[in-house]
């Protein structure tokens, strides 16, 4: 698939989960300050970065997001005291899981963006788009239709069940 797309034309899709109290306000500030940043990002406002269940990150990746950004308040500044620390724990687990399964854990980013830091929001999105452009389109998109998408047809690999059946 990736070969058909000219690298210069490729625009990565980013799903961003922004916490209501800091990061979303930060994104807002970037907008009201008329800061220019790439339009590749689709934002979803959540009450807290700690409330982002990894299921939604995985869902975004499987449905074709090239990158997922989770952003919350700066550590120590969480509106709910410790939500962002817990978000970080969830992220450690998710990244270790993706790594163990041979998937690219660097497509998932966690950043602390405060409400007064529109510039950092802009920089983060820019940086992320650049990094994803280097990586190319996601290979994690759910293979709905493996017979067609994989060149030469899909061949099942034999991974033996240890039950010996």
């Amino acid at each position: 698939m990736s070969t058909q797309i000219n690298k210069d034309d490729y625009e990565p899709k980013i799903v961003a989960f922004l916490c209501n109290w800091c990061s979303y306000k930060g994104a807002d500030l970037a907008g009201t300050s008329r800061l220019q940043y790439p339009t590749n990002v689709r934002t979803i406002r959540t009450m807290c970065s700690g409330a982002v269940d990894p299921v939604y990150i995985i869902k975004a990746l499987l449905d074709g997001a090239d990158g997922v950004l989770v952003a919350g308040c700066v550590l120590g500044d969480c509106h709910y005291q410790s939500g962002n620390y817990k978000a970080r724990r969830k992220m450690i687990i998710l990244k270790a899981e993706l790594h163990a399964l041979g998937l690219d854990e660097d497509r998932v980013w966690l950043r602390w963006i405060s409400a007064s830091d529109g510039i950092f929001f802009k920089e983060t999105i820019k940086e992320m788009v650049e990094a994803l452009k280097v990586k190319g389109p996601t290979p994690m998109k759910q293979p709905w239709n493996m017979w067609k998408t994989v060149k030469g047809g899909w061949k099942p690999k034999t991974i033996n069940s240890p039950r010996g059946e």
């Binding site: 998937l103 994690m140 759910q142 293979p143 690999k157 991974i159």
Partner: peptide, 21 residues
């Protein structure tokens, strides 16, 4: 050895889809 071997086999989402086919 068993877990290492398994992790070595897991390279992409297609491998995951294979196992869960």
């Amino acid at each position: 050895s068993t877990l290492d071997e398994f992790r070595d086999k897991m390279q992409s989402m297609n491998d995951m889809a294979d196992i869960l086919s």
